[in-house]
Design a protein around this nucleic acid. Structure first.
Length: 426
RNA sequence: GAGCCUGUAGCUCAAUGGCAGAGCGCCACACUGUGGAUGUGGAUGGGGUGGGUUCGAAGCCCAUCAGGCUCCCCA
């Protein structure tokens, strides 16, 4: 036995069963995106390093990206996210695109990080973006797309929810508390991870940023104030829109959601699982009105979110929400009695395929127990038996494995009979 | 980039430093034209990898790889 070569650290192998989950997610994100009229797009998987160096933090580029020199000496990067590519592509055609632009994408991204539960180095990311509309209703639409997805995979509001805040509201509250401007970035980071820090430790961390006791208690009061959104006209409109769209049961206001990213300028939101084993967010996004000009385009308002496939995949698995894996794509297995009946079996299978029925032939003469067992394990619901007796009488025998029902009929009626058996739910 | 835990049959896991095991799965037969259920029997391991200590290592030590839990970071 030769030495086994392992898969690269942090990658996943997609055996048919995992591929099934991946395609299931793809199907659901497509449906949610298209329900709101979004168009699918994609960008190159490899981009030049400069694209990220321009906007993304140094941390990301230097430590968390797969970057290497190609044979021509150019530095290229496996895309760690989609937004910079989106910004470039929008900027390149800013004068010819039909705005507002509604785009979605589902494709692979790479980050050089320590793999943990819910975090791999290679993952698929669903991105949804709306560019060219600056209204609370636009923000609500994005949140609704996300909520519609959660609903479509049968996650109930009690299992997963989207929590919303607005940076402009937080900014005005910070002003009210007269928090020093220099401390605000650090404060946002602390707010972000307040839930996983010991309370005393957290207070200390805040005070170290040059905040006084009065401001600290004001800040804590503000983070407990779940009706603070009523102070914001745009959040009021946002929640009212979510109500009209019919997804408000999935959405709530949370003053602790600020998100680490620098480029968000208004509404921010993040979806979490309630009480599960994964302590990571399912998806996150917000309004980023300055990104386009930052990459050299004309100013353009934008709102979007991204969801990785890993966390949501684990959540669905643990909640038992993944539909049963159907091993074979075939609805029918045609057995082969012996070499002399092979032709009849191949022809019968071909007839079924012409009728649009996915059919597999067990194309070596084998004992029936083996062939039936194969059909059973591959979850093929119907087995056609075409042995010497059937051939002599111009019959076929059809067995539905789920019910165990077995019938014989003239070969000419085979397609019709199988159709009706499949329609009965076999 | 840092700390800690784990790695034994296809899977889930046992075994005071002293003969490497169980359940499930798999294969065969009972059932020579029919899957699942039941019964009986059977196969499978250079113990993640490479060194070291020891009369003797799955276990102890070192290194390394992978997974997991934190920190960090989260585009």
């Amino acid at each position: 036995m030769t030495r086994k070569i392992q898969a690269v650290k942090g990658t996943r192998e997609f055996y048919p069963e995992q591929m099934y989950l991946r395609n299931y997610l793809y199907e659901k994100v497509r449906a949610a995106s298209q329900a709101f009229g979004y168009q699918e797009w994609d960008a190159p998987f490899i981009e030049s390093l400069e694209l990220y160096a321009a906007k993304s933090g140094e941390e990301l580029v230097k430590r968390q990206s797969f970057t290497f020199q190609d044979r021509g000496g150019e530095y290229v990067t496996l895309r760690p996210e989609l937004t910079p590519s989106l910004a470039r592509m929008i900027a390149a055609r800013q004068n010819e695109l039909i705005f507002p632009v509604r785009w979605w994408s589902f494709g692979p991204c790479w980050r050089y990080e320590q793999p943990q539960k819910g975090r791999t180095r290679e993952f698929f990311q669903w991105n949804v973006d709306l560019l060219g509309v600056d209204t609370p209703e636009a923000d609500a639409e994005l949140i609704a797309v996300a909520a519609e997805f959660l609903r479509s995979v049968n996650l109930k509001p009690s299992q997963a929810s989207i929590q919303v805040n607005d940076r402009r509201l937080m900014e005005s509250e910070f002003n009210r508390l007269k928090l020093p401007a220099s401390s605000r970035l650090g404060l946002s980071n602390l707010i972000d991870r307040r839930s996983k820090t010991e309370p005393d430790q957290w207070d200390n961390d805040v005070l170290e940023l040059g905040v006084n006791q009065t401001q600290l208690s004001g800040l804590k009061e503000l983070l407990e104030d779940f009706s603070m959104w009523e102070k914001s006209e745009s959040l009021k409109r946002l929640f009212s829109a979510l109500d009209s769209i019919g997804v408000s049961e999935y959405v709530s206001f949370n003053p602790s959601v600020v998100r680490g990213l620098l480029y968000y300028t208004g509404t921010v939101f993040e979806a979490f699982e309630s009480g599960g084993s994964v302590r990571r967010s399912i998806l996150g996004g917000g309004r980023y009105d300055r990104l386009l000009e930052d990459v050299g385009g004309k100013p353009l308002s934008a709102v979007g979110f991204a969801m990785g496939d890993v966390v949501v995949g684990i959540i669905l698995q643990e909640a038992g929400l993944i539909p049963e894996f159907r091993a074979s794509t075939a609805s029918v297995l045609v057995t082969v009695y012996d070499q002399s009946s092979m032709t009849a079996s191949l022809m019968a299978a071909s007839e079924l395929r012409k009728a649009g029925i996915n059919t597999l032939v067990y194309n070596e003469p084998s004992k029936y127990p083996r062939q039936f067992k194969y059909a059973d394990r591959m979850k093929i619901p119907i087995v056609v038996v075409l042995g010497p007796e059937e051939i002599m009488r111009r019959n076929v025998t059809i067995k539905a494995l789920n019910s165990g029902e077995q019938v014989s009929c003239p070969a000419a009626d085979m397609v019709e009979k199988i159709r009706s058996m499949l329609a009965e739910g076999n």
